[in-house]
Computed example of a mutant assay.
Amino acid sequence: MRRYKTENNYRTGTAAFVLLCSLALTACQGAQNTGGNSQEESRKEFFAMDTYMTFTAYGDNAGEALEKAEKEIHTLESEWSVTDENSEIYAVNHSNGNVVTLSEDTAGVVSFALEMAKETDGALEPTIYPVLTAWGFTTDENRIPGNEEIQSLLSRVGYEKVELNGQKIHLPEGMELDLGAVGKGYAGDLTAEIVKESGVTSALLNIGGNVQTVGSRPDGNDWRLAIRSPYGDGEVGVLEVSDCAVVTSGNYERYFTGEDGKRYGHILDPKTGYPVDNGLASVTIVTEEGKTGDALSTSMFVKGLEGAQEYWKSHEGFDMILMTEDGEIYLTEGIENNFTLTDSFSNMEKHIIRR
């Protein structure tokens, strides 16, 4: 079977820590304090959860708050890593069908992942890891597995087979959990809470492209987040938000090109075991909680344009921006007035989704 090297669509720029993780979001210039409200800025940049993170906070306790937040991120990574032999998730995946007792945080994130899997009818699938590995997206040694192999691996996939009772989990032998679709968002919620408990009321936590905003900018205005183009360089538009999470998913982030000339992205359809190919280029979710944004950005991408709209119309608590491969953009009505196209994309056909 021929193998291919993954093409991580990384870009460089003024906010390289965001561009490197290719999740299409970055804080626009202008988030610095202006006017008479002077608050000291503290900043932390570090690598964790296989991505670059940048935390910025303002106020007297900002530095101490960010120290605690970074420590929390590393703790969660040590518990949730799929590859770290000392992590709880690694222990679950190598339990040979035996019951494992999880910490409170890990039980919480697993419970949430299973809940969202059920809520999205399996579009979010926390047990897809064996199939993801077959495609090489966990090893950067990509290959196109045969249909027979994929079907065999899909027999080891199914969130409904996972038994979680409090902090005790039973994972059938041969199955593997991966919290990649919810972990960073869940971590964002926990670190945002730490920052708030430290008395900070203005912060921007960039968790590998999952952007968590605490309050508004120091000058009282909304944070301005540039949504990068899934079609190449540049920004499609600017989204103005406060005190919420913004998360983007798309198969332009990480992909490889097969010998057939076709691009294969890293987000898989759990029903088929193949990379999603439904006409969507990217999905951006705006919601109160990072964990929800993380889960929905992946699952709405899997559902596609029509499925995502149907889901939104029957569920409260989030807004979204959908971009199609043919260059159209769909906004839900809740953020219609918060999003502005840049000059380069001003001719993009824009549709408003209403309930």
Rank of each mutant, 00 (worst) to 15 (best):
T292Q: 11
T292N: 10
D294Q: 07
D294H: 05
A295G: 07
A295L: 08
L296D: 02
S297I: 00
S297V: 02
S297R: 02
S299P: 10
M300D: 14
V302M: 05
K303R: 15
K303A: 04
G304F: 12
G304L: 11
L305C: 08
L305S: 12
L305I: 09
E306R: 14
E306F: 10
G307H: 10
A308V: 01
Q309C: 14
Q309S: 12
Q309M: 13
E310M: 13
Y311F: 15
Y311P: 04
Y311S: 03
W312A: 09
W312D: 07
S314F: 07
S314D: 12
S314Y: 10
H315T: 09
H315G: 08
E316R: 14
E316P: 06
E316C: 11
G317W: 05
G317A: 09
F318M: 02
D319F: 00
M320W: 03
I321D: 01
L322Y: 00
M323G: 03
M323T: 10
M323H: 08
T324W: 00
T324I: 04
D326Q: 03
G327D: 07
E328F: 01
E328V: 04
E328L: 05
E328R: 06
I329F: 08
I329Q: 05
I329A: 10
Y330F: 13
Y330M: 05
L331D: 03
T332S: 10
T332Q: 03
T332R: 05
T332D: 04
E333A: 11
G334E: 05
G334I: 01
E336K: 15
N337E: 14
N338S: 15
N338E: 09
N338Y: 13
T340S: 12
T340N: 13
T342A: 02
T342L: 03
T342I: 07
D343W: 11
D343G: 01
S344P: 03
S344D: 15
S344H: 06
F345A: 06
F345H: 08
F345T: 06
S346Q: 06
N347K: 04
E349L: 13
